[in-house]
Amino acid sequence: MITTFQYALQQDNITIEQLLRDDFQVGKKVMHEMRMAKSVLNEAGEPMVWQHHYPKGTNLTFNVNVEPSSYVATNVCEVPILFEDAHVLIVSKPADMATHPNDPGQTGTCMNHVISHVNKQGGVYAEHVHRLDQGTKGLVLIAKHPLIKSMLDRMLEDKQIIRTYEAIVDGFMTQKSGSIRTSIGKDRHDSARRAVSPSGQTAITHFEVVGQDANFTKVHVILETGRTHQIRVHFSSIGYPITGDRMYGSRTRADNYSLQAKKLQFTHPITKEMIVVEDYK
């Protein structure tokens, strides 16, 4: 299946290769595939010359080859969609729902619901750019075609997508803002857990206290890295586990732990709009 969209050059005297490499930051493999497939056309439907310099305002048509995603669609999409355009979706994943299937044919995950929505629009492709733990609720960014997926993956790696979380932790935090910079690796005693480990991967979590009482503290958290269970591990390691997170030491009994992906902010790599989406639920 081919996904088509239009784009007007926003710079003067630029080649198609420069646009894809420098502006869109498309990887070499995807760029080579697009060049071989003659995926970029002019207004007459003719392939663009990749090394020719084109003026600002030149109208391009992108024909992106799309292989269908493998998720089994639910009958109805029950995941709230908070933002959508021709390229991306931002959805609000409920707590106790996995982001994506872990086994072939698995249903009921966030991506099963999302592909149902996309299919009903005539699309076949949807892939998450990042994931949330099953117990974490909130915003998930999803690509609607492989080109934007490649671009967003690079942006995430380069820390150009700002993810803000809101958490309630046990205890009264005396430090009102700061950063936790301790590496995270697998727990040697429990494969489902992660732990602070000198031999683990670098992990950096920034936080700011936004409210508290004698027993609990509400914090806003920005991830600089995205390790498995990062926020949960980091706050537990400094003595303030996420409220209700029994896996990481909370003594508060709750149906789920209190962690939400609250806000996503990034410059849209194609439209260049500043996208800011907040989840108020």
Results as ranks from 00 to 15, higher is better:
N65I: 05
A8G: 00
H145S: 02
K186G: 05
D187K: 06
D96L: 15
V76T: 15
F216K: 13
L132Y: 15
E157I: 01
T109Q: 15
E67G: 05
H189N: 05
T3H: 10
S150V: 02
R35V: 03
Q18K: 05
V140N: 04
R35Y: 15
S69Q: 14
G122F: 01
Q10S: 09
D255P: 07
A203S: 03
P198M: 08
N102W: 07
H32Y: 09
T3I: 01
V276S: 02
D245T: 13
A37N: 14
L89R: 03
N59D: 06
Q260T: 14
I14K: 07
D103N: 15
I16C: 08
A98K: 12
I184T: 04
Q230E: 04
L82V: 09
E127N: 06
K93R: 11
F235N: 07
S39H: 03
F216R: 13
P68L: 08
H130L: 08
T243Y: 10
A167G: 06
T58E: 02
F5A: 00
P269Q: 08
V233K: 00
H206T: 07
P47W: 10
A98G: 03
Y71F: 13
T164H: 12
V72D: 01
F83W: 12
M31V: 08
V233T: 03
E46D: 09
F207T: 14
D96A: 11
V114I: 15
K281Q: 03
P104Q: 04
N42F: 01
Q230S: 04
V76L: 14
M97F: 13
K93F: 12
T243W: 10
Y280N: 15
E84M: 13
K176L: 08
I231A: 09
G200K: 07
H113Y: 09
G123W: 00
K218E: 02
E273N: 13
A73V: 13
A86V: 15
R194E: 03
E278V: 12
R193L: 12
S199A: 02
G45Q: 05
D213A: 09
N42K: 12
G27A: 10
N13W: 00
R163I: 06
E166D: 10
A203L: 03
A98Q: 14
A195N: 10
S69K: 12
I168A: 08
K120R: 07
E157W: 11
L19Y: 05
S92A: 07
V118E: 09
S237Y: 06
R163C: 00
T164W: 06
Y240W: 10
M48F: 05
L89P: 05
G45M: 01
Q260V: 08
V221D: 01
R227F: 00
T109R: 11
V124K: 11
S150Q: 04
V276W: 01
L41N: 09
V40H: 04
I275P: 11
